[in-house]
Structures are given as C-alpha cells and as structure tokens.
Amino acid sequence: MRAERARPLRRSATLALTAAFLAPVALLLVWSFAGRWPWPAPLPSRWRASAWIDLAGTGGLGAAALRSLGIATTVAFAATGLGFVTCRSAAEARSRDVLRLLLHLPFALSPVVLGVGLEYSFLRAGLAGRTAGVVLAQGMLAYAYALILLSGLWNARTRAYLEGAATLGAAPRQGWVLVLLPIARPLLVLCFVQTFLISWFDYALVLLIGGGRVVTLTTSLYQFLLSGDLRLAAASALLLLLPPLVALAAHRHLRPTAFAADPGF
C-alpha cells in the first residue's frame, strides 16, 4: 500500500532527474547549431551546421575526437590489463595501509599538482608534448584506480573458488583463465569503462604534459570557449558526453554494479 503510494512520487522524481540531465544537453545541442544568437533572444535567429561539418572533416574537431578516443582506449586497456595482473599482490600486500594511501594519493592531489610535478621528468625523457607522454601520465592515474577497484576481487569467495579448482587439479593458469576471468568479467568491464572515462575527461594532464601540442576534445573545448566560439565548444561538449552515455546504455549491468563493487582499498 505504502509502496503503491510511493510509486508516482518515484516516477516524478525519475522524470525530474532525467529532465535535469537532458535540459543542459538540449541547450548544448541548440548552441551547436546556432548561427546567430544575440542577447536577449530566447532562441537563435539563424541556424548553421558548420560545427558538425567541421567535425565530419579531416581536421580540427574530428582529429581531436579521434586522438582522445585513441588515448583513452590505450589507457583503459593498459590500466585494466596491468591492474588485473597485479591486483592480487596489492590486495595481499603486508603494508596495505601505506599502499592504500599511495593508491589514493594521485586522486587526493590536484591533477595540476601532479602534472606540474611530472612535467620536468617527462621533458627530460622526451615525452612532454607527445601523445605517449599524455598516455603515460594518465595511465598512472588510471592504474591506481584499477588497483583500488580490482583488489576487491580478492575476497574470501574468490579464493575459495580458486582453491577448489586447484584441489580438483587445475593448474594456476587454468585457475586464472577458467575460474578467475569469468568471475572478474563484470568488474573488468567496469574497470575498463571507468579508466577510459578518467582519460576521456582529463584536461589538466593533457594541458601540462601535452604542452598544447597534444590536442584532445577537452583542450579543444577550452580553446573554443576562450576564443568565444560557443558553437564549436558546444559540439565538443556533446562529443565528450557521447562515450559515457553509450557505455551506460550498452552495459545495463554496469549501472547497478558501478558502485556496488567492494574496492579492496
């Protein structure tokens, strides 16, 4: 009875939330097609698709989008793969408290502080101003996140499954491939998506390590905003929203598990 009374309330809250999210997206969409939109007009007086035509072209926004995609995919693959291989050592380390602090430090420190600190070493190593440098810097952050998330995999139940498989004659490699990998699959997908987003959302490290020579969607957005081109800034923003929304829509199981995973740290 009480649940039935709560249902319309829940439905209206859901609608309000969805509207609160869709309204900014709608405004970005309008801005990306706005030809001329002087104050105080409530809507643009002319419409143009030039921002999207530029995106479809080889240069500018399209190239930045492809570079962002390449960097984020590389970072996500590397961090998730390395995280999966090393997460057991992190989960079972003796100095867990120190390791816990170490893994959280890259997030507790500002990305600017991290970027400023890393810049000189990267400059000396010939990595500053290069895509590889940005991948490495973001990779460090993503790897720390992957370890925090994937260490949660090593709970008593997983260990019991692995021990059971070993008792039945499975070699360690078979245990990993046939037992651990199926258990870990949802968490690995989640880890891949989250580390992808860490890289995809990043602006500070691209700015400081990339030094203006590595142009991604986030740096493009800021440049368009600085130059007053709100159409292209809005188009960049919509492109930035696309992969996270696709990930949320495609992996329905990610939603309930996104924060349900017990991080090991």
Binding site: A13, T14, L17, T18, F21, A23, P24, L27, L28, W31, W200, F201, Y203, T218, L221, Y222, L225, L230, A233, A234, A237, L240, L241, P244, L245, A247, L248, R255, A258
Partner: peptide, 20 residues
Amino acid sequence: PWFLPIAVPPMVAGLTAVLW
C-alpha cells in the same frame, strides 16, 4: 537516473553552467 550525471565531464559541466 542518478547515473546520468556521472557521464558528464567537469569541463562540460563548467560549460553548461556558463550557458545556463
């Protein structure tokens, strides 16, 4: 519905705040 804003990068949130 609470997962939708999680898809918003801080840069986009800043831009939409300015535009709104």
